Simulated scan of single mutants.
Amino acid sequence: MSATDVILAYLDIWNERDAAARLTLMKSVLTEDSLYADPDHAALRGHAELSESIGRARENLGDLRFTLDTVVGAHHDRALFSWKLGTVATGYDVVEFAGDRIRSIVGFFT
């Protein structure tokens, strides 16, 4: 699986409204001990914490969907990409891979 494929699968997690389906996606995309941080969250560890946070966010996002804008670059076990949330928000994420799954995500809003 390419870095782009994994990133697209990661964005699918953010777009999934159903908590059970989201957790299933997480198991295939994120390591069990994955770490997530963004300007609003210092450190969410593991599938349950991130899924709960995504669930709360989805309640406020309505029909808005996350899409991949550009994979800026990827090397070794890391990638930098930009994303869009409909037409209302953009940002960048840095991900660290562990094989074909993501070990950590650090997000930035623009």
Rank of each mutant, 00 (worst) to 15 (best):
M1T: 04
S2C: 09
A3H: 09
T4R: 13
D5G: 05
V6T: 14
I7S: 02
A9L: 01
A9Y: 00
L11M: 07
D12Q: 04
D12M: 00
I13P: 01
I13K: 01
I13C: 11
W14S: 01
W14V: 02
N15V: 01
E16S: 02
R17N: 14
D18G: 06
D18K: 12
R22T: 03
L23M: 12
L23I: 06
T24H: 09
L25H: 04
L25C: 03
L25D: 08
M26C: 12
S28A: 10
S28L: 01
S28W: 00
V29L: 02
L30S: 03
L30H: 00
T31P: 05
E32A: 13
D33H: 05
S34C: 11
S34T: 04
S34H: 06
L35R: 11
L35E: 12
Y36S: 07
A37M: 13
A37E: 10
P39E: 08
H41L: 08
H41Q: 14
H41E: 14
A42P: 08
A43R: 14
L44W: 04
R45Y: 06
G46D: 08
H47Y: 02
H47E: 01
A48P: 03
E49F: 05
E49V: 05
E49R: 10
S51A: 15
S51N: 04
S53R: 11
I54R: 08
I54S: 08
I54W: 03
G55A: 13
R56N: 14
R56Q: 11
A57F: 15
N60T: 14
N60G: 15
N60S: 14
L61H: 07
D63K: 09
L64D: 13
F66S: 11
T67P: 15
T67Q: 11
T67V: 15
T67C: 13
L68T: 06
L68W: 05
L68F: 05
L68G: 04
D69C: 10
T70Y: 12
T70L: 12
T70Q: 13
T70V: 09
V71G: 07
G73M: 15
G73K: 11
A74R: 07
A74S: 15
H75N: 14
H75C: 13
H75L: 10
H75E: 14
D77C: 06
R78Y: 11
A79I: 08
A79H: 05
A79M: 12
A79W: 04
L80G: 02
S82Q: 12
W83L: 03
W83T: 00
K84H: 15
K84V: 07
K84Q: 15
L85R: 11
L85Q: 07
G86K: 09
G86M: 09
G86Y: 10
V88M: 12
A89K: 14
A89M: 12
T90E: 14
D93G: 01
E96L: 03
F97S: 02
F97N: 00
A98R: 09
I102Q: 03
V106S: 10
V106A: 08
F108I: 10
F109M: 11
F109K: 09
T110Y: 10
